[in-house]
Design a protein around this nucleic acid. Structure first.
Lengths: 217, 217
DNA sequence: GATATATTCAATTAATCTATTGAATGATGT
DNA sequence: ACATCATTCAATAGATTAATTGAATATATC
């Protein structure tokens, strides 16, 4: 006998949750949050095989989390819509708050590098208006090209130490990256502070700024 | 070699998502959203064996989604906090919007019984102030006892037809239940409309009303 | 049409998940 | 201390998921 409507609905919800139930797929979603990407590029960024990447993307697509289009030889994947970002953000908040292991990694790695309160999007919008802040995007250049905060300068983390002279020591720096736990913005803050700069991270990352409808560069 | 902090964080987030990845666990969470419950009661409400219910609850607890306490012989489970509700709500929105199978069940069953826009919490707060609406809670009495909307009358769905006389035909009725797809409120709306009453559903259910900090009965 | 590139599919293996069953554990009552 | 009730644990079997490998498919170029 078939199950009831309630069970069917819950089965559908569960299938979305299962699609999020692997670290590789969450990482793929974080990359797609920066913009549309091919399988090959995603595989390279995540160090997964192309076949494995493709399989994970199929699962994400079947769950309605990503969509794809053909662009010549390439199949380009993107997030289906902004509610996927909200879902990822809420998942993160529950895990941060309630999982001891997650809390341990946050304290042991992330907070050890930057335990200051990140700058809210609202606050940064005001600071940008006043023109009294340097905005630093530490993502790779191709992600910067796909979209960035207004007035942001793009210095990938690997180039940072070679480009310290570009910063005005009198201005505070706000650094941002792909998302709340993108290692690069934490490393950038640690490195800049070690050199005496006043620097904080932006809460979350570029995708959330964009989804909030805030101005882009 | 151990994985990096980013991978550890994603693994933690993924474990929360996996815990949501089964229809039985989502149903258990919906029941717990109404209030604290014992394993035995949850098993009875969901028609699962006690051992199976206990196993699913262990997974939910390990994922930080539920917590438990000993109350004499009984172990009482509850949702860890309100962000779990937000997570469930967002999961539902993504599934509603992006999964064809979920859309098919919604249209074929739920919308077939009530395709009117549900009443928002904000709107109901205003209508309650004016005193021009009847609020109907169709959950079982024990859930009603754990908490309900102000002024609500409790008529479980099985008793509804025997108690039509209790409704003032001049007043609109707003019916609510455990959540957005609780079958009982849809059936109640269909039955009352068939009898000529003016009736709509409340958006979502009691847990969301309570989490919004709105007054309780 | 042939070749190269990008991607997906199918088969296989290993790991993980789910439900069941019966034993073990904890609390209560006598 | 023993019996009863409620719950959890451990073992097992079957189902599902993940990664790999090689084949198949789709597109672009010549």
């Amino acid at each position: 006998m078939s199950i009831g409507p309630k069970q069917s609905i819950f089965a559908g919800f569960a299938s979305v949750a299962r699609a999020l139930g692997h670290a590789h797929r969450l990482e793929l979603l974080e990359h797609l949050a920066q913009g549309e990407r091919s399988v090959e590029t995603l595989a390279a960024r995540t160090s997964l095989s192309i076949a494995n990447t493709s399989q994970h993307l199929q699962q994400l697509r079947r769950a309605g989390l990503v969509a794809s289009r053909r662009g010549g030889k390439f199949v380009l994947y993107r997030l289906t819509d902004d509610t996927v970002l909200v879902l990822l953000s809420t998942l993160r908040q529950v895990a941060e708050r309630n999982l001891a292991e997650v809390d341990r990694v946050i304290r042991g790695y992330f907070d050890a590098r930057d335990d200051m309160e990140p700058v809210s999007r609202k606050e940064l919008v005001e600071r940008l208006r006043d023109g009294l802040v340097t905005v630093l995007d530490v993502r790779p250049p191709d992600e910067f090209e796909m979209g960035h905060l207004p007035g942001a300068i793009n210095i990938p983390i690997g180039d940072l130490k070679a480009r310290f002279a570009e910063f005005d020591p009198r201005q505070e720096i706000v650094a941002y990256c792909r998302g709340a736990y993108c290692v690069m913005s934490f490393e950038a803050v640690a490195a800049l502070r070690a050199r005496g700069f006043k620097v904080r991270r932006l809460e979350e990352g570029f995708p959330e700024w964009k989804a909030a409808g805030l101005p882009l560069g």
